[in-house]
Design a protein around this nucleic acid. Structure first.
Lengths: 139, 139
DNA sequence: ATATATGCAAAGCTTTTGCTGAAGA
DNA sequence: TCTTCAGCAAAAGCTTTGCATATAT
C-alpha cells in the first residue's frame, strides 16, 4: 500500500480513498474479481462509490503497474494485484481463476526477440475443471 | 472443409452456406479475426449475411471443436481455426496476434492434475510489441 | 488555488435473444 | 415433411465518456 502512495505521487496522481479501497480489495482478494465484483465488495464500506470510478481506478492502477488484467476467456475482464510472475488455472465450469506457479514454465518463455517481436510479459492460461466442479459432476 | 461437413452431419447440424463461408474465411485468415472482422470479410461475397449469424456460426463451429477463441486481452473476442497446439504473440500496440510454436513450451505444460484441477487446454499468450509497431515507434 | 478525481447519466460497443420466414436433410 | 437455421430488430450486457461538483495537494 505504501508503494501505491509513492507511485501515485510520482506520477502526479491523487491518492483518493476510492483508489485505496479498490487496490486494497484487489490485494486481499484471491478470486481475480471483475469490475462488477469489485464494485459490490468495495461498496459495502463505501456506499457512494460508482461503477465508473471502479473502471477509472483500475485504469489508473494498471497505468502504475500495480494491477494487471487477467487474460481469461470470459465475458468480463478480471483483475489481479499479484504482479509476481505467475499463471492461471481457469475453471470452465465455474469461472474460478486460481494462481499457478511454475519456474520451469517461466524459464521457457522467450525473453528475447522472436521474429522481430519483443516480448514483455507472458501468461499461461490453463483451462480445465477445478476440484470442486468435478465433485459436483459426480452424482 | 470435408471434415467440417462430416462433423456437422454427425452432430445433426445443417451445413449452410453461411457456416461454410465463416469457416473457410477463418481457415484462410492469418489475423485471428473478431466477429466484426469476419462479418466485413464474409459479407463481400455474401451481402445478405447478418452479424448475428456470424456469432451463431462461431458458436456452432466452436461446439464442433473446429474453431477456438483466442485468449487475448482486447475488447472483442478473436477466433482461430488453427487447432494445432500453438501459442500467441499479442502486440499491445496494434492488437495483432501472431502464432508461436514451441515444442519445449508444450512439453512443460501440465497434462495431469494440479491440486485437483484437471487441465484440458493450455494457451500461452506472450504480449509485447511487434516488429512493425517498433519501427513506427522510432522517429 | 489549481489540478485531478468522483459520481451520475447518457452514449457506445459487443453480444445475445425471440421470432418469422427460408432452407437443409 | 420436419427440423434446423438465417435474418432482423430489439434487448441486454459491459465499458467509456462528458460534465458538474467535490477533493487532494
Amino acid at each position: 500500500m505504501d508503494d501505491m502512495v509513492r507511485r501515485c505521487r510520482d506520477a502526479g496522481m491523487n491518492v483518493t480513498p476510492q483508489r485505496l479501497a479498490v487496490y486494497r480489495t484487489l490485494l486481499e482478494s484471491e478470486e481475480h474479481p471483475s469490475p462488477e465484483m469489485l464494485y459490490r465488495q468495495v461498496r459495502e464500506s463505501m456506499p457512494s462509490l460508482s461503477l465508473a470510478t471502479i473502471y477509472k481506478a483500475l485504469e489508473a492502477l494498471e497505468r502504475l503497474g500495480l494491477v494487471h488484467e487477467v487474460n481469461v476467456i470470459s465475458d468480463t475482464k478480471r483483475y489481479d494485484a499479484n504482479t509476481d510472475n505467475h499463471h492461471h488455472l481457469v475453471c470452465t465450469m465455474c469461472g474460478n481463476v486460481a494462481d499457478y506457479y511454475s519456474d520451469e514454465l517461466d524459464a521457457l518463455v522467450p525473453r528475447r526477440r522472436v521474429r522481430g517481436f519483443v516480448p514483455r510479459s507472458v501468461t499461461v492460461n490453463i483451462t480445465g475443471v477445478c476440484a470442486s466442479c468435478q465433485q459436483a459432476g459426480d452424482h
